[in-house]
């Protein structure tokens, strides 16, 4: 027990402002990245279902490129390589949001495609037979049903992406683990700080899980 309680846990309080700053950036990059990632994923997912071959192929290339490379490599490439091509240095937080958006978007695209595909074909036929066009049928008949089925896998992806934001410390996004390492470098309290950082992540993901479960229940009650 001494191995755990022998450390200066009370001292962690002094570093909470620094860690809170890290938490702020972790949340900023997560929320920003996932919001854009969801839009991107919805577009790419629907593109995968498009009648037009070219649209379909563009989506496939995007999805495969992202899924086939590590997030860490994507982050480093966007922050350190891309600026040399576009002659513009992205702020690290912006680069971080782009990485999370692009990365989660590819996985969300597959979630969207699967969910839309899983809605019974009879639903589309019923909509079209009433004279609804493709767009209205998707928007009012298929999408709401598909969206419910997306919630569990989306929750999974959100949690993965939130944890992935810790990799953004290598491109200098001042998020949780980045702040933690700064503190430890000066105060040598690795056990206390890194444990606290881990608990912060756990708090975020557990909260998200609870929200998703509640959302799912609310939607279930109606159908």
């Amino acid at each position: 027990m001494d191995a755990i309680f022998g450390f200066n846990w009370a001292g962690v309080v002094d570093f909470l402002p620094a860690l809170a700053r890290g938490l702020y950036y972790t949340l900023l990059v997560s929320v920003g990245g996932l919001l854009i990632g969801f839009v991107l994923g919805a577009i790419a997912g629907l593109a995968r279902l498009s009648r037009f071959k070219i649209v379909n192929w563009i989506a496939i290339i995007y999805i495969e490129a992202v899924r086939g490379t590590p997030v860490l490599v994507q982050a480093i490439w966007i922050y350190f390589a891309l600026p040399l091509i576009i002659k513009y240095t992205l702020p690290s937080v912006v680069a971080g949001i782009i990485v999370i958006a692009l990365n989660s978007g590819a996985y969300i695209a597959e979630i969207v495609r699967g969910a839309v595909h899983s809605v019974d074909k009879g639903q589309t036929e019923a909509g079209r037979s009433l004279g609804l066009n493709r767009h209205v049928t998707m928007r009012h008949v298929i999408w709401p049903q598909a969206f419910r089925r997306m919630i569990p896998p989306l929750g999974n992806q959100f949690i993965i992406s939130i944890k992935d934001t810790s990799l953004l410390s290598v491109i200098l996004v001042p998020e949780l683990i980045f702040q933690g390492r700064l503190v430890v470098a000066n105060h040598f309290n690795a056990v206390e700080i890194y444990t606290t950082v881990a608990l912060f992540y756990l708090a975020i993901t557990l909260t998200l899980s609870a929200v998703l479960r509640a959302t799912e229940k609310r939607l279930e009650r109606r159908a």
């Binding site: 036929e125 019923a126 037979s129 049903q145």
Partner: peptide, 20 residues
Amino acid sequence: IDQVRAEIGMVFQQFNLFPH
């Protein structure tokens, strides 16, 4: 086609009501 379909009602074996 959507305009013509609007004039043709269809009833399916599996009902196909919108469950949501």
